[in-house]
Amino acid sequence: MLVAGVKTFGQVSQNYDSTRYKKFLPDYVKMQFAGGIGFISMGVGYTFFNQKLEVSYFYGYVPESVSTDDLHSVSLQLTAKLLRYKINPNIELMPLNFGWFIHHTFGSEYWIKLPDHYPAEYYWWSPGRNSGVFLGGEIKTKLLSNKTPASGTAFYVRAGSRGLYIASKFGNATIPLNDIIEFGFGVAVYR
């Protein structure tokens, strides 16, 4: 009875696996350094429209060693890969990625909705959730595809800024442009 049960379950799970389950597996995992969303960030996501669009979700961590307090945050990102060149069968170059992100930092001081002790519209921004844009480039290789189930590994760089920084720079010629740019780089392993 038990054996039969397990067998049935095994069969169901196998069917499930091959038909639907895989669809919901993330298309890639990413690990990113800096870029304003964490010292180290781990992300998963999906590709759409023949890999022209990516939707990623990151968890980012800033350790105490590089900030006064450690920080935890999550961010949601949309990346459009506007150009794609196949250099050779193993290497693909995507030199123009454009992205938008929304970044949420955890902690009561990083509120999203203006707390009750303020009159309406006292502060127009929210410290806990702000968004920005970035430009980047990526090289996709076949690395890891031989030894693992992964189809390839990509390396990417990005340079972006967020609304709060752009608003600070606005009207201020004396603020250096690179002060508002958040650089980052990372690696993505594709399924």
């Binding site: 800096a34 900030s67 702000n130 709060l164 650089f183």
Partner: peptide, 18 residues
């Protein structure tokens, strides 16, 4: 490289105090 020359280049969070 990251720890010396690029300390100001890379941002970890708008709330990182360093």
């Amino acid at each position: 490289f990251i720890n010396t020359s690029c300390e100001d280049l890379f941002d970890y969070s708008p709330y990182a105090i360093d």
